[in-house]
């Protein structure tokens, strides 16, 4: 009986905690459909889609989503390819200093991007690569590579070497081996790396805020912040709709790939 009650108490506590997490979030949903949106969570008085129409009819908002997509897609694609190339020798060869490279990469993952943004800005400014979607993507690539190489290596370690040896004997070169033997087996790992990189850069604010100064280059993270600065304290409905539209792609991506994500997390967790 006591056990039963205890089990119940913990369930109630859990549901209470979960609702505390959901509660603040509900505002974005309710306000975005409310013609007279306020700052509180409430059922919309006048249900409307006008906020969404207003956000989507603004071409500069479109462009900001396109910019976000260009940055995140370029970055995560590069991250997957480069981390796969880098992880291969780290997983397979017995070179000296392999352990040291792995530890150095781990060390770099512990350094926050925030701490180097001022010199990165100066460097980009002096090299005249400031305000460019490509160089911003490249910087974001470098920023997540160390961590991605680790995850990729962990996935690769699980691929039996014997498969490749057969391929080598058949005369396959490096790229053919990667493409035919490794890629099919570590596809889930590649998805994990891609999704983590994509959602990381999609949600990043500081890097594009510093490196992309012109309005035309601003990704959604920056555009929505500027919207907040100009209209956010008046047009709550539009702010909420914009926020929801901006958050949606990551949520969808996350749910689609939840299986991969969790297995990837366990990987990095067990090999910390």
């Amino acid at each position: 009986m006591i056990r039963y009650l205890k089990k119940h108490v913990s369930t109630i506590v859990l549901i209470f905690i979960a609702s505390l997490f959901i509660w603040p979030m509900l505002w974005v949903v309710s306000a975005s459909f409310d013609a007279q949106a306020t700052l509180t969570v409430r059922l919309p008085k006048d249900f409307t889609l006008d906020s969404y129409k207003a956000v989507l009819s603004n071409p500069s908002n479109y462009r900001s989503f396109l910019n976000s997509f260009i940055i995140s897609f370029t970055q995560s694609t590069l991250v997957v390819i480069l981390s796969m190339f880098a992880a291969y020798p780290l997983s397979r060869s017995t070179i000296k200093g392999k352990y040291r490279i792995m530890l150095s990469l781990l060390f770099i993952t512990g350094l926050p991007i925030t701490a180097i943004m001022v010199p990165v800005y100066m460097m980009f400014f002096n090299l005249k690569i400031i305000n460019s979607l490509i160089s911003t993507s490249l910087f974001l690539t470098a920023a997540v590579l160390p961590y991605s190489i680790w995850i990729m290596k962990n996935f690769m370690d699980d691929v039996p070497v014997s498969l490749e040896e057969a391929a080598w004997v058949d005369g396959a070169n490096f790229f053919q081996t990667l493409k035919r033997i490794i890629v099919p087996v570590i596809l889930p790992g590649m998805c994990v790396v891609f999704i983590m990189a994509f959602s990381g850069s999609w949600g990043n604010f500081f890097v594009p805020f510093i490196l992309l100064s012109s309005v035309e280059k601003a990704p959604a993270a920056v555009a929505i912040y500027q919207f907040f600065g100009m209209w956010g304290r008046v047009a709550y409905g539009q702010l909420a709709a914009f926020s929801l539209l901006y958050t949606m792609p990551i949520v969808v991506l996350y749910f689609v790939a939840q299986r991969f994500m969790l297995s990837g997390f366990m990987f990095s967790g067990s090999l910390k």
């Binding site: 997490f21 959901i22 509660w23 603040p24 979030m25 505002w27 974005v28 306000a31 700052l39 509180t40 959602s199 999609w202 949600g203 990043n204 604010f205 993270a221 929505i224 912040y225 907040f228 956010g232 709550y236 702010l239 909420a240 926020s243 901006y246 958050t247 990551i250 949520v251 996350y254």
Partner: peptide, 17 residues
């Protein structure tokens, strides 16, 4: 959901809250 919500959106959510 809190974890995957982008930084600025987290700020707006708590601005309202």
């Amino acid at each position: 959901l809190g974890w995957i919500t982008p930084e600025v959106v987290v700020a707006f959510i708590f601005f309202a809250f």
